[in-house]
């Protein structure tokens, strides 16, 4: 059985740590960012690789969810085409607040190398984006760094105040 070693001489003799609600909510939020699997193209494979054995996303509390209703962050990994554009909007609308968007790869950022009639030139034309990851394809390390930056961003915001909804326009 686990031994709980509590030093009663510290912290005023109580087995508790005092903190503010704000901090604890942000701690919870930032360490369990559930991501919506939004692998659209090649970058989606790197996103899968970040979730798999070597890179192990679970360390960050990032677990891929298939449903937008359970997800906090949408990782747009891959080329967003004009035919697909409406679906990203639909799925984004289904996510609950607070929600964040990571745009992964040059295609999602700006259209990337596909400067053609069929690609949306950056997914920020459709939904508001919090974080842009450069690269084609970004390495899994880049995505992990991105998630850590997102955690930092979440911690910097006040959790108790109602968050302003992000707007594209």
């Amino acid at each position: 059985m686990a031994q709980h070693k509590v030093n009663y001489t510290q912290d005023g003799g109580l087995p508790v740590a005092l903190t503010s609600i704000d901090k604890i909510v942000n701690w919870g939020r930032s360490n369990s960012i559930w991501a919506l699997t939004y692998g659209l193209a090649c970058c989606g494979i790197e996103m899968m690789a970040s979730g798999a054995s070597r890179f192990d996303f679970d360390r960050y509390g990032t677990i891929f969810r298939a449903s937008p209703r359970q997800a906090d962050v949408m990782i747009v990994a891959g080329t967003l085409t004009k035919k697909h554009a409406e679906f990203i909007k639909r799925l984004y609308d289904q996510m609950t607040e607070p929600r964040w968007v990571i745009s992964m790869g040059s295609c999602a950022n700006t259209g990337g190398m596909f400067n053609t009639y069929a690609t949306v030139q950056g997914c920020d034309r459709i939904i508001p984006v919090d974080l842009y990851l450069p690269g084609c394809a970004p390495r899994p390390e880049t995505l992990q760094y991105g998630v850590m930056l997102l955690q930092k961003k979440i911690r910097a915001n006040s959790a108790s105040k109602a968050q302003k909804p992000k707007r594209l326009m």
């Binding site: 004009k82 554009a85 409406e86 909007k89 400067n115 053609t116 009639y117 069929a118 949306v120 034309r125 459709i126 594209l168 326009m169």
Partner: peptide
């Protein structure tokens, strides 16, 4: 053209937000 015509350029904006959003985006 490779980059698409006028219709292609605004396709997703027109469909999702409507023509009046063109200026804002």
């Amino acid at each position: 053209p490779l980059e698409g015509d006028e219709f292609a350029a605004w396709y997703e904006i027109d469909k999702i937000y409507g023509k009046e959003a063109r200026e804002a985006i």
